[in-house]
Design a protein around this nucleic acid. Structure first.
Lengths: 166, 166
DNA sequence: CATTTTGTTCATTTTTTCTTGAACAAAGTG
DNA sequence: CACTTTGTTCAAGAAAAAATGAACAAAATG
């Protein structure tokens, strides 16, 4: 390693970078994702060059574990892409910056699974309801029927959102 | 107080009630709201009679503080309504069970404020960008312009959702 | 192959969020 | 009014979620 090297290992973030990262941190928190995910995506979004895991760790000052974990989530959502650079051993990442892709990834990765598990639960509820003859059974039947309708409309809504952005 | 009273103070929840409450607990957690909010809304949703704060505390086995806090959030979202019962001193609550109203309440109470604060931040960013002449400024300008477009589309999307349910 | 580089996993620690319960205020009652 | 009932607030404790960092595995290098 060269001694007395002039440049710092990690270049400090400038004002614009900080603001953009901050914006994404708040954004992902609304969506229920960890702060580090917002930091990483924000940094990639505002940086022209593809960054390696170590770049991310150094520039954001977060741990390697967090960075690895955050990138995993972002890859799962389709929010970052891997860019292979000739002569580079490490993976380098860039932000996927198409709103449609991001929203689709979130809808399919986070919202749909919940809707589907809800569907299973509703099926069980309907069975339980069929044999329910206790006080107030009619009211409960009506309410669970309503839940079914909500479920159907929610599915359609997600499809509408996809169409809206497509 | 009558001695040797036969009925329990709090009637235990039956299977259907438990399942429905569970469904809402998971639902509100997706939306980033506390578990107690889901419990309270679920109980009101599946109960024919309006319930008082104490009814809620007893049937769910949560603290008065949580119940009060949870009801406050639900009122703020327009998800519960107060029903005045003649001859009753306490407030009694019923679930607002129209999907449209619930979604509107959430959109206006939770999503819109974030979008609006994002708008302010974007305005600041645009100013900072104008005077940015450092390496990579063009890229950053392009990205922040993109954020503006995202913001506009998000607003429209929320309106589309409202229309979809209306 | 032995060694270095790179990235993941996971037990632990830290941070954040939620719940509790007691103190308090506000309103109702006799 | 003094007393009760009802509901809110908030400091402290409990629970849940996220970040850390060291151990590990996998792949590249010479």
């Amino acid at each position: 390693m060269p001694v007395g090297t002039v440049e710092d290992k990690a270049l400090a973030l400038n004002d614009i970078e900080i603001s953009v990262i901050d914006l994404f941190v708040r954004g992902v928190q609304v969506l229920g994702l960890p702060k580090s995910v917002g930091q990483i995506y924000g940094l990639l979004f505002i940086t022209p060059e593809p960054l390696s895991l170590d770049d991310i760790v150094e520039r954001l000052g977060i741990s390697k574990g967090s960075a690895s974990q955050g990138l995993k989530i972002l890859k799962g959502l389709g929010a970052v892409a891997t860019k292979y650079l000739p002569g580079e051993r490490r993976d380098h990442y860039v932000a996927q910056a198409q709103l449609k892709v991001l929203v689709s990834g979130f809808v399919n990765g986070e919202l749909m699974p919940h809707l589907e598990s809800g569907e299973d639960r509703l099926a069980v509820l309907l069975e339980d309801c069929a044999t329910d003859e206790t006080e107030g059974a009619d009211f409960r039947k009506e309410r669970i029927e309503r839940l079914r309708r909500w479920h159907g409309r929610s599915s359609k809504l997600l499809k509408t959102i996809d169409r809206f952005l497509g």
